[in-house]
Design a protein around this nucleic acid. Sequence first.
DNA 1: GTCTATAAAACGATAGAC
DNA 2: GTCTATCGTTTTATAGAC
Lengths: 205, 205
Amino acid sequence: MAGRRPGGKGPSRIERERRAQLTRTTIDLVTEHGYAAASLARIAQAAGVTKGTVVYHFATKDAVLEAAYQQVLNELVADVGQAVDAVTAEQAPAAYVRRMVGHFAEHPKHARMIVESRLHQVSKDEDTPAGATGPARAERRQPLAALLTEARGDRSRAEGRDMRTLAVLVGGMIDAVVAEGLDDPTYDMQAAAETIVQMLEAELF
Amino acid sequence: MAGRRPGGKGPSRIERERRAQLTRTTIDLVTEHGYAAASLARIAQAAGVTKGTVVYHFATKDAVLEAAYQQVLNELVADVGQAVDAVTAEQAPAAYVRRMVGHFAEHPKHARMIVESRLHQVSKDEDTPAGATGPARAERRQPLAALLTEARGDRSRAEGRDMRTLAVLVGGMIDAVVAEGLDDPTYDMQAAAETIVQMLEAELF
DNA sequence: GTCTATAAAACGATAGAC
DNA sequence: GTCTATCGTTTTATAGAC
């Protein structure tokens, strides 16, 4: 494990810089050549260091990829969270959709990183079937479902509506729009986001 | 290359059986332990043969996975195509959604296989960014987009609607429902499919 | 604290025996 | 037509020099 220093102080300056450099390089590698191309040797070569250096700072190859993924995810959560907190509960779902699509439109690399990680970042449990990311996946739609329930309030039109399914559907639409935008840079993701908002609000209000 | 026989007859009986056995084994491996676990050695071991045998019938490892994927895809296309052809143009989109979800609900293994292949089945071109599956991905939504355009006819409500985006959104909702169903077997995919149909027809008619 | 050198295993694919 | 044996590469990780 890296970062084991005597005194209880935080990571050293060069420790933080090296880790940041390596995660940046890893993100580039994964987004440009796929998860399979992100071997220790390639990460090291791309960063201009040796394999030993990479393993020294991260202990294992998976730790590097996990760190890269977490960084991307943290930025997304912070960005969307801020946008949602800035509006009323009623406007929150629309803000969520717009910022989610907007974030990925502004950071296509991050979108690719998350798409690539979705499948590979599965648990190491041998008995876990592929694609079943377990709790991580189940929690993916939960924040949106909570926003929807709050926004709905006690409106009659939305009575009996299944907020879980609505969250699943809206989440799927967002994923699809992002994927389409990655494939075709000329695709108008913002316009598609507005269509999602309209369909969502037709169901909610 | 396998199957090179003197006379212009089709593949031999044992050729067909071996290939079928190996593709079946490969599908099981990929769906249960992920694409990364589908190495030549593991495929051979699971099928009770040697690596050489596998390579003899398929020439390359990717050819095995491609064959497994194509078989799954062919069954899906045949099933959904038949369902769509059995109804009027107006009912076709709803039939598409229902059979798509139904097929994956009945064949969870196939759903996992397709999800796993989505990322890895990228072109071998070094310059192709990860996640960009090129033409294959662009064509994914085309059949649905065609159904939507035909079903819409000349209805006023649907005038100016972007059928490409609608196809992208509906496709994304289907993917999300299938993924949710894979993660949680108790999830009511059929009910979710009906919600998709309702939202779709609200946009179309 | 950082690196070189290397170990040990798994990989895809081939050559050649039968 | 089918298999065994093996080649050459690449993988992750470690041991030890500096």
